[in-house]
């Protein structure tokens, strides 16, 4: 059986998609898949994903309906608005929600490993995270990653 390992380090809406899309698809293709969530990537394991947002700030590549000066992007509420607009667009285009993709990963037996060090560092509560995940460190990741066909850092 082919194997794939992904390290998910980002906790924004846009960067949350690649790990879940690739993991669910690889699982559908018969891969054994593991995602190691570390640093901001840990936010993707929360039971409630509504705080996962996208920011136009410092993201000049983000397509905007109207050009927006950085000074405007800084205003309160802009992040929430950009997130709302992005989620709306994703839905209209038939792209799965993060929750849906994450569920599909779990259903397909993708293994989620949370970085224990980051949990300690940010003083996260394990009760905030979904069930059926494991906690481990770099060596835990290497044990699986060392034997994979595809290994990605997102």
């Amino acid at each position: 059986m082919k194997k794939m390992a992904i390290i998910a380090t980002k906790g924004t809406l846009d960067m949350a998609y690649p790990p879940f899309i690739l993991a669910s698809t690889a699982a559908a293709l018969g891969y054994e898949v593991q995602i190691f969530f570390t640093f901001y990537g840990l936010q993707l394991l929360r039971k409630d994903l509504s705080d996962v947002k996208i920011s136009p700030l410092a993201n000049p590549a983000m397509p905007m309906p109207v050009p927006m000066p950085v000074m405007v992007q800084m205003l309160p509420g802009m992040e929430t608005m950009a997130t709302m607009m992005m989620k709306d667009k994703l839905k209209k285009k038939g792209v799965a929600s993060l929750e849906e993709l994450r569920d599909l990963c779990l259903e397909a037996d993708v293994k989620f490993v949370a970085c224990q060090m980051t949990v300690d560092l940010f003083e996260f509560e394990k009760s905030d995270f979904i069930d059926n995940i494991e906690y481990g460190g770099a060596a835990t990741f290497m044990e699986f990653a060392g034997d994979t066909d595809i290994c990605l850092f997102v």
Binding site: S24, T25, A28, G94
Partner: peptide, 14 residues
């Protein structure tokens, strides 16, 4: 219909 990548593949698999 109306679904985007990777949903058509995942649903085919299912």
């Amino acid at each position: 219909r109306g679904l985007n990548c990777p949903l058509p593949i995942l649903k085919t698999k299912k």
